[in-house]
């Protein structure tokens, strides 16, 4: 099942969760649940990888190879399933300061953020 399908199946429940848990993200996406606009776009993967290695690799590993499991972004799908795009979006945008994740909203626009996510989709650890 693709993440997009999972998202649409659970759209109602997800919207409810978003209202409760992520008012900021929801406000930026009034049209509906958070989804990757580049889903399935092979042409943005290389650029996503390059952006990842420029902005994220120093904590999350070159080409997403990371041995510290909490920082291993190849496990997003395993860990969060259909919620992965939303959780990724929120963590990157708003940071997790106590865990050392900065607020990247002012640096990475939505376009860059989703290009990085599109690369990460290609390196997910199988269940």
């Amino acid at each position: 099942m693709s993440w997009r399908r999972a998202l649409s199946l659970h759209a109602g429940a997800l919207a409810a969760v978003l209202c409760l848990a992520a008012p900021t993200a929801d406000a930026q996406n009034p049209a509906g649940p958070i989804a990757n606009p580049f889903e399935g776009r092979a042409d943005v993967i290389d650029e996503g990888r390059s952006l990842f290695n420029q902005y994220c690799a120093h904590c999350h590993g070159t080409n997403a190879h990371q041995g510290e499991r909490p920082r291993d972004l190849r496990r997003l799908k395993l860990r969060y399933g259909s919620q992965a795009p939303r959780i990724f979006y929120e963590a990157v945008s708003n940071g997790r300061l106590e865990k050392g994740m900065p607020v990247w909203k002012s640096v990475l626009g939505e376009d860059m953020l989703w290009r990085i996510f599109t690369f990460l989709e290609t390196v997910q650890t199988p269940p």
Binding site: A57, H58, G61, T62, H65, G67, E68
Partner: peptide, 17 residues
């Protein structure tokens, strides 16, 4: 060491392991 191996990709994974 916990942070710096991230820079090293697969080699870094070996260090963590």
């Amino acid at each position: 060491v916990k942070g710096p191996p991230s820079f090293l990709g697969k080699i870094g994974q070996k260090v963590i392991d």
